[in-house]
Design a protein around this nucleic acid. Structure first.
Lengths: 344, 344
DNA sequence: CTGAAAGCGCTTACAG
DNA sequence: CTGAAAGCGCTTACAG
């Protein structure tokens, strides 16, 4: 039923070598031959068989996108959708396809083997938020071209694209300090996630840059999700009620907007007002951040852009092996809103 | 570098036919041969080349997931993430892979051709919310096994999985009527989206079932998004201010939670209280619906489940061609919260 | 149960 | 520039 190169060749009156060259934009084809082949190809709506092509050429023009399901609770926010949009958009532009694998820890090994050993894809994008993902080790061992979304803290062989979590958290907290806020607390992200780690470090270093010593009593860890932010803020409030605690912090840097949403809820229930009683800043600039009450000061990240850059970096790695790893950090942007109106 | 069947065969002391049979769980293999092959396979971590396999077998064990980007503004809510999770989870279970294509209208044709004519995938899931998607026509013409997520209103050849938009909208509005609400308005979804169409029809038929005539003045069309709901509610309020309009509706059925969020914002700005001044119901049971002020009465849909069922239906269609189309409607669930406390 | 062989539909040196 | 031919690494009747 399906057409083959052979049939196109016959119809166009050339050999299948020539048809193949035309289809692959190869050199050494006369204008006349090219024209005739293209005419037939278009008339019959011919598309070469992908499997045969992959087998003969030894590549697939497909990439894998691996998202550890451990992280995919984050699926409740637009992070992954935006990332996926960026990646697929770059793939469309460069004529690549993307295979999507969401894997839990148990399936992960198995999937990685399938990917790396069966030649299904030419390279992989790993959207891992974890500090140390076993997938990354497997990819390194098998010498599969890959790009991690989210920086790798230690291994120099890893190419990655990340947003500037550290510097932008630092900048945001520095901004709060300059406004006049003192005793700034944080609801941090999980320490085993690179973004959680980096934002916390940025927070601490911003304090240190002002000669302040980060106070462990002002640091609570959340899970990046709304409920986690709610619970964490309740913890902070409970600590503030302890005698000799120093009372309510002046402001809270919440390491994600989702958690900030929960924190706002906890504050509302406690009868506290933002920013009158304390300032609050989030991170991510989620769509809802502009519409909370009050609107959130936060950090905007180029997530879709990160997807595009990750994909293009991977294409480059695939087409130019033996080049050194790329490490790309994309700038982020401070977004100031009413939740940090000092003395407002 | 990569291993081949041939090498495994040699190592195990059998022919490559036998290795192939073992790997494919074929019959006619002695326990002893199977054992030896599996031992070697595992020891060397061998995975057969996908391209060669696809070419020889004439199938890929991959499916395509096509999401028209026209719809992917919906990417701001968890609909697609949940759907994707359902689909990939079923794929993991059944040892299929999924290729993801997000296409805008212009690329769509081209992508469909690539899919259908190159044999990249064995079948396709189309997550189209549109009443009449050209992709669907192309798939039908080329006799590609496919399942649409979202029912197809007319073509009987289309297999689909959908949630019960019509009946559940009808049930929800019927519930509002039984509570005692009169003059129920609706902020409908786009008429060219099947979910928008079905929910609007359910609204109208619920009124008719009580002998009421739907009043065009009480119907405003939104775009399923937050801002659209905001604007639509302002329109409704403007109409209610017209002399002889009958005033404020008793309740508003908003066809998506996102729009309900915008509607709530418009009401708040207008100084109106829910449910004291009018009742409000949403649709979708988004994560935030339980946390709006007041919490939203809405409809919960099994979206992840729809993804699983769509994938499994597709596998069935692929493995059993020449069977009639499947049309599956999954039940949804009314979730009653404070936003419709009649006389509350 | 097992193996030798044909064949899947392309790409790509190689020779002309 | 062009074509004949080998080869990519599997699967699958076919014969035994």
């Amino acid at each position: 039923m399906a057409l083959t190169l052979e049939e196109i060749a016959e119809e166009a009156g050339v050999s299948r070598s020539t048809v193949s060259r035309v289809l692959n934009n190869g050199p050494h084809v006369s204008a006349r031959a090219r024209e005739r082949v293209l005419a037939v190809t278009q008339r019959l709506n011919f598309h070469p068989n992908a499997a045969a092509r992959n087998l003969a050429a030894g590549r697939t023009r497909s990439i894998g996108l691996v998202i550890p399901v451990a992280v995919s609770s984050l699926f409740t926010d637009p992070y992954f959708p935006l990332l996926i949009q960026g990646i697929t958009s770059a793939c469309n532009t460069h004529d690549y396809s993307v295979m999507l694998w969401l894997a839990d820890i148990e399936q992960e090994r198995q999937i990685i083997n399938k990917i790396t050993r069966s030649g299904m894809v030419d390279g992989v994008i790993v959207a891992s938020a974890l500090m140390d993902d076993p997938v990354v080790q497997a990819l390194l061992e098998d010498h599969i071209p890959f790009v991690q979304v989210g920086r790798h803290p230690t291994d120099e062989r890893v190419s990655y694209v990340d947003v500037d979590n550290y510097n932008c958290a630092k900048e945001l907290v520095g901004y709060l300090l300059r406004l006049g806020y003192r005793r700034i607390a944080t609801i941090a992200g999980p320490a085993n996630m690179i973004a959680g780690h980096d934002r916390r470090l940025g927070y601490q270093d911003a304090l240190r840059a002002r000669g302040l010593v980060p106070d462990p009593a002002l640091i609570v860890e959340g899970d990046f999700l709304e409920d986690g932010g709610y619970v964490a803020m309740q913890q902070l409030l409970a600590r503030a009620r302890q005698p000799g605690s120093g009372g309510l912090p002046g402001a809270v840097f919440v390491a994600s907007d989702a958690m900030a949403l929960g924190a706002l809820r906890a504050l509302r229930e406690a009868g506290l007002r933002v920013p009158a009683d304390l300032g609050l800043a989030g991170y991510d600039d989620m769509p809802f951040a502009a519409r909370t009450d009050p609107p959130l000061t936060t950090v905007r990240q180029p997530i879709q852009r990160a997807g595009v850059v990750a994909a293009e970096t991977l294409f480059d790695l695939i087409e130019n092996p033996h080049t050194p790893p790329r490490r790309i950090i994309l700038p982020t942007e401070l977004v100031v809103r009413a939740s940090t109106d000092f003395g407002g």
